[in-house]
């Protein structure tokens, strides 16, 4: 009897999970479906069966250059992530292994900057970018995204490093490991999974960031987010082309996410699940 109940329970839970997953995934699915429709089909209304035309992709590709914004996205997201890690690793390290009375306050203060609406600082940032010549440059955007994501990167790494037990480092010291050997043989192998999932998550965050990337770029440094936005332009709204552009923009990150999902899940649930 108990077995039957647990099987029924499992079926219900699995069905519910599938429904929730489908609801979450539906906007992406509908974007892909719409991208395979013709323009008249796309504006006609809700329809799940497209005519499977690649017309929009061809137009998107010939009308606008996909490669340049793609490369901009790669440079900006990877660049800002590496830069953030460069700053955050030593910061998180010192806070995790030699905390002071103020460590918690500093962490909270860092995170509190994420609670401020970005639009509140749009004008001053825009003016600073304009005056320093950083507008529409990859460098400027990389710096911007580094700063935006830095608090999250520090927090994630801090939680990871905190999980490395101090006794293991002491054991290494007793075993005769010098500082360099301690870092190479013990610390790094234990910290790498944490750093890797922080890196992955941050690349995704930076890739998807659209507030600053759209507002601080026009053509030269415009990443894929700006590329998508450019299809809702003065010439009118082209749903199919917009969807094709969106599909192209999210494809790389979707593929990357698929291959690294194990790492990502571990990263996101770290500390919560032991």
């Amino acid at each position: 009897m108990a077995r039957a109940v647990s099987t029924r329970h499992k079926v219900v839970a699995t069905t519910a999970a599938w429904i929730v997953a489908l609801i979450i995934f539906f906007p992406i699915l509908y974007t892909i479906i719409t991208s395979l429709k013709t323009e008249p089909e796309a504006i006609k209304g809700f329809n799940l069966i497209p005519s499977f035309t690649l017309e929009s992709y061809v137009t998107v590709h010939t009308q606008r250059d996909y490669f340049k914004p793609f490369m901009n996205s790669v440079v900006i997201s990877v660049g800002s992530t590496l830069l953030a890690l460069l700053v955050a690793i030593p910061a998180a390290w010192s806070m995790a292994f030699s905390p002071t009375r103020r460590t918690k306050d500093i962490l909270m203060w860092m995170l509190s900057t994420k609670m401020m609406p970005a639009v509140a600082v749009l004008v001053p940032i825009y003016l600073i970018f304009r005056d320093t010549g950083l507008l529409d440059t990859r460098f400027g955007l990389t710096i911007m995204l580094t700063l935006i994501n830095l608090p999250i990167v520090v927090w994630m790494l801090y939680t990871y490093f905190r999980e490395i037990p101090g006794e293991i480092l002491e054991a290494a010291r007793m075993d005769g490991a010098g500082l360099l050997q301690e870092i190479v043989h013990v610390l790094t192998p234990m910290a790498v999974p944490g750093i890797a999932s922080t890196l992955l998550l941050n690349i995704i965050l930076a890739w998807n960031e659209s507030f600053w990337t759209i507002r601080l770029t026009t053509t030269n440094a415009a990443p894929l987010t700006a590329f998508i936005a450019s299809f809702s332009s003065p010439q009118g709204l082209f749903w199919a082309k917009l969807s094709a552009a969106s599909t192209l923009a999210i494809a790389p990150i979707l593929i990357m996410g698929w291959f690294s999902q194990k790492q990502l899940v571990r990263g996101l649930t770290f500390g919560a699940v032991k």
Binding site: E167, I168, E170, A171, M174, G176, A177, M190
Partner: peptide
């Protein structure tokens, strides 16, 4: 002297094994 130079070995409460 540094821990390693004292010629002692220690067994910790949490075992402190290298998990990797």
């Amino acid at each position: 002297a540094a821990p390693a130079k004292r010629g002692l070995a220690m067994v910790f409460q949490s075992y402190a094994l290298y998990p990797h």
